[in-house]
């Protein structure tokens, strides 16, 4: 029963209407979710690489970790979820060339050490920002929804093939993780990147807390840029607070062994 100013309206409400609808919008949404699940069926694990803070080296860590996995014979892919500042395709040497359409899917590019990668960077004109067609003076209303839809299509339409690990390189902030968790059949595990400073610690702990509250499993902390000009103990502090290990301490000029060691811990 509907109400208007507290007075019952004698009409049925949304859930009372159960006639078959030719649009089938709930069914279309359901089909999208099944498509994501189906596409990721051959991916053993999805790991979100996140921070909550910009400039800590998420994409750098993601790319080098993926390469170490590839060198170790463990098939890995990277989905660049940083739609507005995509960099991981360049880090993996996979910017050039078109993405190949194959039936109902897009094939990922193959970068260094056999890492498969899909990034908005591969689709945009050089030097141009991600922009959508539509009413620009009201873009604040719909832009976030369009970006979430783009992430959904990257998950549902890319034929990754069999992977042991799909690393999702998230942008700074919290929103993209929430979208990712909504889209996946189950929330992803989370690899958290920080630099040593207390400022980074504070930003990262908020993001990690939000991820845990959304059901993510925190795998551990990667403390990046250690031994340089950034003092602090953010890695240890976050590890203690969330009860997870510091998986790697990465110096400014890391030797390859750092990434190989990190790969063995995942």
């Amino acid at each position: 029963m509907s109400h208007l100013y507290g007075v019952p309206l004698n009409i049925r409400t949304y859930h009372d209407l159960t006639d078959a609808d030719v649009s089938g919008l709930p069914e279309q949404i359901g089909a999208q979710r099944r498509r994501v699940a189906g596409r990721l069926a051959r991916v053993d694990r999805v790991i979100a690489v996140m921070s909550g803070k910009g400039g800590v080296g998420k994409s750098f860590v993601t790319a080098h970790l993926a390469r170490a996995l590839g060198r170790g014979g463990r098939p890995a892919g990277v989905l660049d979820a940083d739609l507005n500042g995509p960099t991981v395709a360049r880090l993996l040497g996979a910017r050039g060339g078109p993405l190949t359409l194959d039936g109902d899917a897009v094939l990922p590019a193959v970068g260094a050490d056999g890492v498969k990668v899909v990034s908005m960077d591969q689709l945009l004109e050089d030097g141009r920002p991600l922009a959508f067609r539509g009413p620009q003076n009201e873009s604040f209303v719909w832009r976030g929804a369009m970006e979430a839809a783009a992430l959904r299509e990257f998950l549902s339409d890319v034929a990754w093939g069999p992977l042991e690990l799909l690393l999702v390189d998230l942008p700074p902030g919290l929103a993209r993780f929430a979208e990712l968790a909504d889209l996946l059949p189950t929330p992803p595990a989370v690899l958290t990147v920080t630099i040593p400073t207390p400022e980074s610690r504070d930003a990262v702990r908020r993001a990690l807390r939000a991820a845990v509250e959304r059901g993510a499993t925190p795998l551990g902390i990667v403390e990046n840029m250690v031994g340089g000009p950034f003092p602090g103990d953010a890695g240890d502090a976050l590890a203690a607070e969330f009860g997870v290990p510091v998986l790697a301490r990465v110096p400014f000029h890391p030797p390859a062994e750092v990434w190989a060691e990190l790969a063995t811990r995942l």
Partner: peptide, 9 residues
């Protein structure tokens, strides 16, 4: 996407 490159696919 309004800023996609011509030969993306």
């Amino acid at each position: 996407v309004a800023t996609g490159k011509e030969d993306a696919f």
